[in-house]
């Protein structure tokens, strides 16, 4: 038990010296933060408890590249910064939108996906038929806490009321239950909502609304690892692994292939 504590402390010291890549190569262990409710990106199937999604597939590819065993760590947008900063995982791979706030705390890799903001409404909601109907008085717009949608919608909405909920699933529950009219989401979540839930209707912006590039998050001051990941991103963009993984999850339309 004592040895265990010593080992743990030593490890912690090592991490603080910020060379994750070396650690990974040493331990052959890659720890990836995922948010297991992110449709198409990193979603856990409740029946077999298996993770699925483009970033899960790419994490497997990354682990293979780094010749490390892969383990997934549950995270969320709300706990993202702390999870990465505190080294709960080596890298967070669940389509992390590039926002200023995150960039202040984290290193965000070059984007491999890019999504606009989409809205999900109930099919039977007559008040919202198109994008312009959203920002109207008496409309309640739900967004998930910690997502970049919060700031974007705060700036954008003039008449509608913004409702910030705790999780992504909470958003859909609010809309389905009628406590909110619409929730804002991105393309991967949106298309999966529509295919999984018969009541859901996707409303696409009439013109580009707020394109957000998605990448992965690495703790700052981890240049070696960051470089390694960047080169991996270049590789998968070049050799089609990105496209193949995107296609498997119907996301090929939003991949960013430019290096």
């Amino acid at each position: 038990m004592r040895w265990f504590i010593i080992f743990f402390m030593a490890s912690a010291l090592t991490y603080s010296q910020a060379d994750i890549l070396e650690d990974i190569q040493k331990t052959h262990q890659l720890r990836v933060c995922v948010w297991p409710e992110y449709y198409g990106i990193s979603y856990i199937d409740p029946r077999m408890q298996t993770l699925e999604g483009i970033d899960v597939d790419l994490a497997k590819e990354l682990a293979k590249t780094l010749q490390a065993n892969l383990s997934f760590i549950e995270s969320s947008f709300a706990t993202l910064i702390s999870d990465v900063e505190n080294h709960r995982c080596d890298i967070a791979m669940f389509a992390i939108g590039k926002t200023k706030q995150r960039q202040e705390h984290l290193y965000l890799t070059s984007p491999h996906l890019s999504s606009d903001i989409y809205a999900i409404v109930s099919k039977y909601n007559n008040r919202i038929q198109q994008w312009n109907d959203i920002d109207k008085p008496d409309i309640i717009v739900a967004v998930a806490k910690g997502t970049y949608h919060v700031d974007v919608m705060k700036n954008h909405l003039k008449y509608a009321k913004l409702l910030i909920v705790d999780s992504l699933h909470a958003r859909e529950q609010e809309v389905e239950a009628g406590r909110a009219d619409v929730f804002m989401t991105d393309f991967p979540f949106g298309i999966h909502m529509v295919s999984e839930h018969p009541w859901a209707k996707l409303i696409t912006p009439t013109e580009p609304f707020h394109m957000t590039p998605y990448g992965w998050a690495i703790a700052k001051n981890e240049k070696k690892f960051a470089d390694r990941v960047e080169s991996f991103i270049k590789e998968i963009k070049a050799d089609g692994r990105l496209f193949k993984a995107a296609k498997r999850h119907q996301l090929e339309s939003i991949i960013v292939t430019k290096p």
Binding site: P36, I44, P46, R47, M48, Q49, L51, F72, I73, E74
Partner: peptide
């Protein structure tokens, strides 16, 4: 017993 829970969640 199946499934084997992710991160040992109660399922």
């Amino acid at each position: 017993f199946l499934p084997i829970p992710f991160e040992d969640k109660p399922l």
